[in-house]
């Protein structure tokens, strides 16, 4: 039984059909990139997986248990084994870096001592320890991105959703972002679903790539095949 199973997912906004019968399976610890052009419905798909958005039809299952069924959200976001890194990061402007990790753990009932030690370890691992008392407004773009990843990793999710986390970065920052992705992948055993239109990110994640075309998700294929080079990837997207 796959860890994550998505079948027949459909979603439309007004007359615009964003997802049509989208489906895929993902094993525990698997890696999947959802690739598609801007506005193709990638983020909507991710948000449905997280339980932040309702589908019109289709089922999302974790370990065989239905989390969303059609318009019904059976498992709310906070009961799913999921964390997400948002495109605009979604940091909490009035909480310190340390609190970004500590407070979710406290909310999940992790004992205080354990929450502190996990927070310390994760901040150290992602190079945020010296910034522990800063608020997001006083972080650089790269530091803020690290914090968003650290927050998502802290509750040790089984599925990590990454919504174009390195979009609109300059080449240097993007290279740093890919290095960060390597660090993150080394730090977690979670399955990862990455949404992107950048072949370098898809290659860095590895695993498989599924291209979203006119709301339909093509069957996943190995990343080394779809993203063999930028031109191949561009052609795959152009067809969508």
């Amino acid at each position: 039984m796959p860890f994550l199973s998505v079948t027949g997912l459909a979603r439309s906004f007004g007359r615009s059909q964003v997802l049509v019968e989208a489906g895929f399976d993902l094993e525990r610890g698997g890696r999947l990139t959802i690739a598609g052009r801007s506005g193709s419905g990638k983020t909507t798909l991710l948000r449905i997986l997280a339980g932040l958005e309702r589908a019109d039809r289709g089922v999302v299952r974790f370990d065989g248990v239905a989390a969303s069924d059609g318009r019904r959200i059976l498992l709310p976001p906070w009961r799913r084994p999921v964390q997400m890194v948002f495109q605009d990061l979604g940091l909490w402007p009035n909480r310190s870096v340390r609190r970004h990790l500590l407070d979710p753990l406290a909310a999940q009932g992790v004992p205080r001592a354990e929450a502190r030690s996990r927070t310390r370890a994760l901040l150290a691992r992602l190079g945020l320890a010296p910034l522990a008392r800063r608020r997001p407004g006083r972080l650089s773009g790269g530091e803020a991105r690290r914090l968003a990843f650290a927050r998502a990793l802290a509750p040790e999710p089984e599925l990590l959703l990454l919504d174009e986390p390195f979009a609109s970065l300059d080449p240097v920052a993007r290279a740093e972002g890919l290095a960060l992705l390597d660090e993150v992948l080394a730090a977690t055993r979670a399955a990862v679903v990455l949404v992107t239109h950048d072949p370098a990110e898809a290659r860095a994640l590895g695993g498989e790539v599924a291209v979203l075309r006119r709301g339909r998700l093509a069957p996943p294929r190995p990343a080394v095949e779809v993203c063999a080079d930028d031109e191949t990837f561009r052609r795959e997207l152009a067809e969508s």
Binding site: P76, F86, D88, G90, W92, P93, D103, A154
Partner: peptide, 19 residues
Amino acid sequence: AASSHEAALLAGGPRLALA
């Protein structure tokens, strides 16, 4: 920011989102 609220919902549920 909607994402800030949704991140709180995912990370700590309604209590953290309310906080």
